[in-house]
């Protein structure tokens, strides 16, 4: 009985831990796509956030500064994607993929510059026991984004941009600026999700540590029907499978199969949704 209860507790807490970076990234995807920009670059923004947080936390000794730097790094990549996707009308899939490659390659290179070693950073000051703050903040962010999108004038503008940017222009507003700001905010959220991975859950950066979470978050956006709460729920669902992977490590199931669980869950969830969800009408369509 006690054993069962502690296993459940373990799975719940692991789920929250594993879901948190996904929640941030999924919220980033929601705000970006509701404005009409598909954000394939979530993975790269998470990488940028994760690495920058470590690179600043190490030398300065301040994890708070590290996290802020991670948010800024993500936001800058968001701004970059936003400008490419609007002012320059670059194909959003190509631009996002480019951001992923730049961030992943750039972090691997900068590791050597900052820490003098490839593969992984040295250990840096991290949140340790205080990492629950970022977990709580993830849920608060979901509520905040919900309020922003559905109750404020700017949120209405974002949603209109994702459905028909021409209507926004007809109302005398600038849809390009709205999109750029939305994607930048998304970048900041994804950067925070990355920072949580490196200095919240762990205390170092290593190549490949984001491990496709940016893409799972994209699935969570769709699974959550482009709403903040829906995407959060989907992120928790995928986090659960990641947690199960740890909880069932000694169950005899091959480890590789267990590691594939979250990805399989994402695929199955998406396949089951085909034709039953509706993306914002102008999602991915340049204005």
């Amino acid at each position: 009985m006690n054993d069962a209860a502690s296993v459940v507790m373990l799975i719940v807490s692991l789920t929250l831990i594993k879901a948190t970076p996904l929640i941030y990234a999924a919220l980033a995807g929601v705000i970006s796509e509701r404005s009409g920009v598909i954000n394939i670059g979530l993975e790269g923004m998470m990488v940028a956030g994760a690495f920058t947080a470590v690179a600043v936390s190490g030398p300065t000794g301040s994890v708070v500064l590290g996290i802020i730097a991670g948010i800024i790094a993500g936001a800058l990549f968001g701004l970059f994607l936003g400008i490419l996707a609007t002012k320059f009308r670059v194909d959003q899939i190509v631009a996002g993929t480019g951001i992923n490659l730049i961030a992943i390659g750039g972090a691997a290179f900068a590791l050597v510059l900052v820490f003098g070693q490839p593969g992984a950073s040295k250990e840096v000051p991290s949140l340790e026991g205080a990492s629950w703050i970022l977990i709580a903040l993830a849920f608060a962010s979901a509520a905040g984004l919900h309020g922003l999108l559905y109750y404020t004038p700017w949120g209405l503008r974002v949603r209109a941009c994702g459905e028909n940017p021409h209507a926004v222009a007809a109302a005398g507003l600038n849809p390009l600026r709205t999109r750029i700001i939305a994607v930048t905010i998304g970048g900041a959220l994804a950067g925070l999700g990355g920072a949580y991975l490196s200095v919240g859950e762990l205390n170092l950066y290593s190549d490949g540590m984001v491990a496709g979470r940016g893409f799972i978050a994209l699935a969570a956006v769709i699974f959550g029907r482009w709403t903040p709460f829906g995407a959060t729920g989907a992120a928790i669902f995928f986090g659960l499978f990641e947690a199960l992977q740890f909880a069932l490590q000694r169950s005899g199931i091959p480890n590789e199969a267990m590691q594939a669980l979250p990805y399989i869950a994402a695929l199955v969830a998406l396949a089951g949704l085909t034709g039953r969800v509706r993306a914002p009408a102008a999602d991915g369509v340049p204005y």
């Binding site: 209405l156 949603r159 209109a160 459905e163 926004v168 507003l173």
Partner: peptide, 16 residues
């Protein structure tokens, strides 16, 4: 130039 998935009042007052 309307947003189909928004309400009538949201379309009319968008930006105002």
């Amino acid at each position: 130039e309307l947003v189909g998935r928004l309400r009538v009042w949201q379309n009319i007052l968008l930006g105002r």
